[in-house]
Structure formats: structure tokens, C-alpha cells
Amino acid sequence: MLPKKEIGQDFLNLFYHELVDFDLEHQNKLNLFILKIANNRFAYDELINELYDNIITFSLSRHELDSFKNSHGGKKFIAARDKFRDYTSNEGELGEVLLYCFLESHLEAPKILTKLEIKTANNDYVKGADGVHLLKLNSSDFQLIFGESKLDSDLKNGIYDAFKSIMKFLDYKKNKVRFETNLINSQLIKESVDDSTYDFLKKIIIPSANEDEYNIDKSFGIFLGFDIKVDDDKKNLSNAEFRRYLRETTKNSVLSSVKTIKKQIEKKELWGYTFYLYIVPFTELKEIRKDIIEKLTT
């Protein structure tokens, strides 16, 4: 039995799905989601309202959530909120939250753990994947999805940084994959699951070649947030014209980066891995990411 997904379709309803499972070859997929546009601006307030609930299941393990089952909902939110770094120095955790939401709601890959939930203090820095999800392909084939999120005003810089981080993660000399797998196993022991569920998950995540019952491959979920520039004269377009302009401009910008993504996979010889990319544009990214985290955590 797979863990329960916590993020549903309501999250996806906040976005225009501009590119749907765009084929990057070798089973790699790219999805472009554009936040709803109203009155010639992105509906950030609606996103924040949705994330108030989502950061609880993102930040807290199932064991922690179970410990709050008889408590008022506000206690769960406070516990989740307190794990975030201070918004003034928080440059990446918004991307981690959004990647978690997309992997659960769109890819339907439930969370195994997130980097944030194993922090013991909000100023901790936990190395490794931003999160780990489990995707069921069929009754015997599964993928363990390691998350990597990057927020960069320049989309191509974000792509380079994401693949640079992935290569560091796959550095066999440093045994980061083995460390992450052991971490998953140790966290599963702490989770609020019964013995049969634990045994099932362990068989999937750490399969035995002798049993040949389950196959598990490693894959990567990548979230890329970038800046879409809007000239002052475009802000004066009618609402309908502005929506068309921004959606089309963003789509063209992302499509122009497809070659860069494919080249990174080829250059780094990552053909045996599957990549699920989620791209979302922002306006004034540097300021808005701090503003969103500030409103979520203060």
C-alpha cells in the first residue's frame, strides 16, 4: 500500500497548464504551469491561501501529523511554519514546497519525506534531495523521485544549476544516493504506518535482486521558477490581451530552453534516468518569493 497523497486537484486549478507532458525524449516530460492571471497580474494571494494548508503536510512527517490528530489545526500550522528559514534569508524553500505540490497533485507520486521535515531547527541546513516521492508505474515497477528545485531569474541558469546539483547528488564517491536511501529507511521506521505497509514500502525502496518482485529506478523531479519580464506598455493591455500575451510569451521562453535541457541530459550522460520538469514563471521573483514565505510564516 502506497502512502496517501495529500495534495489534490484544487492546487492545479490555480494554474493554466500551458505545456502538458511536453516530450523531452527518453520518457522525460516537461510541464509548464502559469499561475492564474487577474487584472494583469498573477494571482499570488490565491496561491498563498492554498499553500497555508499545503505547508503542513510538506513540513511535517506523518508521525508528527499523527501526534497532532487530537489537537487544534492551528498547532499543526505553527509546527510546520516554524521549520521554515526566516523569510529575509529564505531563497529556496518556496520552490521545494511547489515541487512537492506538483509531484503529488499532477504526477500522483506521494511524498516519502521532505528535507524540511527532518530539520530540528529552522536555521538547519540539510543537504541532499529537497524531497523524495514514490511513483508507481505498474504492479512491479516503481520510481523513487528525488526532488531538486531552483529559483533563478534566468531560466537557463536555473537549468544549469539544477543539473549541477543532480550530478553532485549522483557522485558515487560521496555515496549521497546510498545515504539518502538509508535516510528514507530510517525515516520510514518512524512513520505512522502499520507493519505490513512498512514491509511493503521497504521491499520497494530497497528491493532484493533475489526476490525479483519489485523493480525500483531512480528519477528526478525538477522545479524551475524564473522571471518573466513585462514591459510597462504591456501592462496597459486589456485584461484579455494581457493574458494572451503573458501566456504566449512564457510558453515561447520555455520552449526556447528545451534544447538546453536536452543538452544537459546528453552532456552528463543521464539517459538512464527519468526527469519530470515543472516550470512556473514569476514576476520580480527575488522579491515575490520572500513576500510569499513571509506571509506564510509570520
Score class of each variant (00 low, 15 high):
Asn31Ile: 03
Val97His: 00
Glu269Leu: 10
Asp171Phe: 03
Arg85Ile: 02
Tyr87Pro: 03
Lys203His: 09
Ile204Thr: 14
Glu93His: 04
Ser105Val: 11
Lys29Val: 06
Phe77Leu: 05
Asp231Ile: 12
Asn123Tyr: 05
Thr181Phe: 09
Thr88Ser: 02
Arg41Lys: 15
Glu64Tyr: 05
Phe42Pro: 07
Ile216His: 12
Asp195Arg: 04
Ser140Ala: 07
Ser196Asn: 15
Asn54Gly: 10
Ala79Asp: 09
Glu104Leu: 09
Thr297Ser: 06
Lys229Leu: 13
Phe58Asn: 10
Asn239Met: 02
Ile34Trp: 03
Ile145Met: 11
Asp86Arg: 13
Arg178Tyr: 11
Asn28His: 06
Ile55Lys: 02
Asn49Asp: 10
Leu296Thr: 10
Glu6Gly: 15
Phe223Asp: 03
Lys251Asn: 08
Leu144Lys: 06
Lys290Thr: 00
Asp232Asn: 12
Ile159Gln: 03
Ser153Thr: 08
Lys268Asn: 05
Gly225Lys: 13
Val254Ile: 13
Ser61Gln: 04
Gly8Ala: 05
Arg62Val: 03
Ser89Gly: 05
Asn49Met: 02
Arg81Ser: 15
Glu108Pro: 00
His72Lys: 01
Gln187Ala: 09
Ile34Val: 14
Ala209Met: 12
Gly73Val: 10
Ser253Arg: 11
Gly128Val: 11
Tyr44Gln: 04
Tyr87Ile: 01
Leu285Ser: 10
Ile78Val: 08
Asp194Asn: 14
Ser238Arg: 05
Ile78Arg: 06
Glu108Trp: 02
Leu47Ile: 00
Asp141Ile: 04
Lys36Ile: 02
Ala79Leu: 10
Asp66Phe: 15
Glu191Thr: 07
Ile279Ala: 01
Asn122Lys: 00
Lys235Ile: 03
Ile228Lys: 14
Lys111Val: 12
Arg289Leu: 03
Ser71Met: 05
Phe15Ser: 02
Ile56Val: 15
Ile184Asn: 10
Asn185Leu: 14
Gly92Ser: 13
Asn39Gln: 06
Phe223Tyr: 13
Thr197Arg: 02
Thr114Ile: 06
Gly8Met: 14
Gly221Ile: 06
Asp212His: 08
Arg244Asp: 01
Phe275Arg: 01
Lys190Ala: 15
Leu47Gly: 04
Ser149Val: 07
Thr114Phe: 00
Ile261Arg: 00
Asp291Pro: 00
Arg85Tyr: 12
Ala109Thr: 14
Phe33Leu: 14
Ala43Asp: 09
Leu255Ser: 05
Asp53Gly: 11
Ser105Glu: 14
